[in-house]
Design a protein around this nucleic acid. Structure first.
Lengths: 212, 212
DNA sequence: TGTACATCAGTGAACGCGCGTTCACTGATGTAC
DNA sequence: TGTACATCAGTGAACGCGCGTTCACTGATGTAC
């Protein structure tokens, strides 16, 4: 009775890692409920701390939300890095670069569908004046956008992509993938079965390769 | 002093068109503030009616929100129809079909940037179990998705698009355009200057045509 | 054309709720001597 | 190695707020006779 559901009892007076614990709790809230579900009091409740304790680590609710969003972006980047790392070594450098782009797109779409709440939070920006310069990258330190850029650079290097088309190419690829993800999560494609969604993803990637 | 700012005084006891008035007020709220800014009490305040009067026309806040979302989608479709109608008559049917697709894409992007709140609301779906079958079309009765489909059909008819690529083509086009819109509004492309955004849009449409 | 009446759109008052945030505090921890 | 003290992470209590929603009501409107 002394501890609430989900709140671990502390043995020390100090929590020791409250800032990160609050972010983790916030990620849970976001996972099922999206960014609106980030309730400062609920996060502190889950961590087992009094509400105002959060103010030792965050200026206000918005600061917490920003940190959570950052963490969600980092998780997305991490998922993409993992997918890249799992790619079998290819002989053909052109095919290798293409495979990497497909892998990035695939993991992006998969992440969005597996974790719609996190995905939505990562790209939600109710508040203006977002700093955005902090690290939202994966373990390798690269953001989703930068990972994509690197793969496109390789495509140019191998000669598979004409240099004059390189500029802005990541906007195209990213837009297409991001758009499908958004439409599948929130938009009119919401009702699609997993199989259909997968097929749409495959077709999309074909079109992207053609469009590059 | 008898009427609050923004609330027109009624001369009749009955409002006469409260349902639509609430939707219009809701659209205003959504316009600057997105879907979260839809506050039932505020909508009634703006209309000049007591809060619970809304319950004569909507089951609850969510029903109001759904109606507003529907109206936002209709506005988007209307903007696209207008753009189509403004298109100069073309001689070449292939060029005509292509021009229509570009026009649809352009107006979609323009709408998103001019009315980010409405755009965000149109595609927000916090609540599951959305009926979605109601009319979200423009004056012509077609939704944004259907307008795009019709243009693609024409592209096939004129022979410019191989029939075997028709299937799922609107997913590709829509995803690309929707994705850019989303990234420009909420995502990492938020900071882009209007000129840059426009250029990104042009490049995107080139890539789309190539990808089709 | 006039009157009685049912309908139902909008009123008035109130509710419980959980939120974000502020205040003065307490007491464990780490540091200086 | 031991003691005094400053620091500051977490506490406890409270606040004002505006929200969505419910209740019993009132009185203008449209309809039946």
């Amino acid at each position: 009775m002394t501890s609430r559901a989900g709140a671990r009892k502390r043995d020390t007076y100090r929590h020791g890692d409250l800032r990160n614990a609050l972010i983790r709790a916030g990620l849970e809230l976001v996972r099922d409920g999206g960014p609106d579900a980030v309730v400062l009091r609920e996060a502190t409740r889950r961590v087992g701390v009094v509400p105002n304790a959060a103010y030792r680590h965050f200026a206000d609710r918005n600061a917490l939300l920003r940190a959570i969003r950052q963490a969600a972006l980092a998780q997305l980047a991490a998922a993409m890095e993992t997918e890249l790392a799992a790619l079998p070594p290819a002989d053909d450098p052109v095919e290798s670069a293409r495979a990497r782009i497909r892998a990035l797109a695939t993991s992006y779409l998969r992440f969005a569908q597996a974790e719609p709440g996190l995905f939505r939070a990562a790209f939600s920006t109710t508040d203006m004046a977002d700093t955005e310069n902090e690290s939202a990258g994966g373990p390798g330190g690269l953001t989703a956008f930068q990972l994509l850029g690197a793969a496109l650079d390789d495509l140019v290097e191998t000669g598979a992509l004409p240099p004059e088309r390189r500029h802005g190419a990541e906007y195209f690829v990213w837009s297409a993938v991001h758009g499908l993800a958004a439409l599948l999560i929130d938009g009119p494609l919401r009702g699609l079965l997993p199989v259909q969604a997968h097929e749409a993803g495959q077709r999309l990637m074909d079109s992207i390769e053609r469009g590059l």
